[in-house]
Amino acid sequence: MTFRMPPEWAPHERTWMAWPGPNATFSGDDLAESRGAWASVAQAVRRFEPVTVVHSPGQAESARELLGPDIDLVERELDDAWMRDIGPTFVTDGTRLAAVDWVFNGWGAQDWATWEHDEKIARHVADIAGVPVHSSPLVNEGGGIHVDGEGTVLLTETVQLGPERNPGWKKEEVEAEIHAKLGTTRAIWLKRGLTADYPPHGFGTLGHVDIVAAFAGPGVIVAHTQPDPSHPDHELCKENVEMLRSQKDARGRSLEVVEIPAPTVVKEDGKWVDYSYINHYVCNSGVVLCAFDDPRDEIAAGIFRRLYPGRTVTLVDARTIFAAGGGIHCITQQQPRV
């Protein structure tokens, strides 16, 4: 049987995360704040399913102190703490589980990134989970893909087709490799990601899709919109929504696009922000949703409650995570239950 990546709302065996250690992304007070934010997400997810956190040597004490006794810890060398991107993409054929190991090169070999250890984490996680590895020659990260579990995958041209990651690869070649590893048959491409996800705005991924658009069910996509016309993402988001509404998924369904307005805050410290509710995490019986101490937090939570009836929506302050370059989805990685 063909291996495929299940949708995020399918049952999970557990969630994997990585523990922040001192590096270019986290230093001084930022490290302490980041650890607190990562711990809040881990504890929110643990209400619904087991969580394993990978930590660097010498970091077990800090992790246990903040995470508490109910979260599993394993020690492996780390550079950074974005398990969505450095960890494996789990796939299944219905009876067996496997782990896709993409090539990781520091989000396009960015000058602030190091990845000597992170490029090996996918294999370490697969080994701990006891599953075989499917190696890919494609430079890719988990935040750069989103699937519906029924053959459709969302991608971004500036990620998989960017010269920083896959120079010389044609779109058809990228699609063929993605489909071969994920069991998908239809790719929907967004042109780019949000403005603050690119230099010179700080730490960024060069356009990950999981902050812009995500499947919330077969034929249903949640899409980030920026209501403030002064923000450079305002027009981009309008174009994304229009494009997505013109698309069909792998089963020929027209997509229902649910718009999720961005928080009211558009700048922090004089820089545009990419605060987004799209970067959420669906776990067993729950949804862990980014919060920003913003009037639109509860609006977004209400939308997700309607999209996921029967699941508890938990808001977790994600501003510290976004300051480091990502969100709740970026620091979590699901292991499907077989």
Rank of each mutant, 00 (worst) to 15 (best):
P336F: 05
A109P: 00
A213E: 06
C290S: 15
F26P: 00
D148N: 04
I71W: 10
A10F: 03
V45P: 02
D118C: 06
P263V: 01
G270R: 01
L315C: 08
E268F: 09
R245Y: 12
W112L: 01
Y281V: 13
E175I: 02
D101V: 10
R192D: 06
L255V: 12
R306C: 05
V139P: 00
T92C: 13
M83V: 11
I331A: 11
P218V: 06
W102A: 12
I321Q: 07
V54P: 07
W107V: 03
A60P: 00
D269G: 11
G106E: 01
R186E: 10
E256R: 15
A318I: 04
R14H: 06
G36K: 02
L307E: 09
D317L: 11
L307Q: 12
S136P: 11
A262M: 11
F3K: 01
G270D: 05
S246C: 08
E49G: 12
D274G: 14
V241Q: 04
T52I: 04
H124F: 15
D70M: 03
W112S: 01
V74W: 04
I128F: 13
H134G: 00
S285W: 06
A10P: 03
I211V: 13
Y308F: 15
A10S: 15
A176S: 08
F215M: 14
K181A: 09
G310E: 10
E173A: 10
P22C: 05
A176Y: 05
V91G: 09
P200N: 09
F3V: 06
H146S: 13
G168L: 14
G58W: 08
R337D: 15
R4F: 15
G149I: 10
D317A: 11
R311A: 12
L154W: 00
H201D: 08
G193Q: 12
E49L: 14
Q335A: 06
V222M: 04
L190G: 09
P7N: 11
E150K: 11
V257L: 12
P200F: 13
G94D: 07
T205I: 10
A39Y: 00
D148A: 03
G325I: 14
Y198W: 09
T195S: 10
L67N: 02
R165D: 05
R123A: 14
A109E: 11
A262W: 07
D111S: 14
R192M: 01
G202S: 10
H179F: 14
A60H: 00
P50V: 05
G193I: 00
F26N: 09
V313P: 11
A113L: 03
Q160T: 06
G183K: 01
F292K: 04
A39W: 01
W169F: 15
R319C: 00
R96A: 15
E172N: 05
V220P: 12
R47Q: 13
E173N: 03
G217S: 11
E242S: 13
A129T: 09
L206I: 12
D127S: 15
N140I: 00
E298P: 00
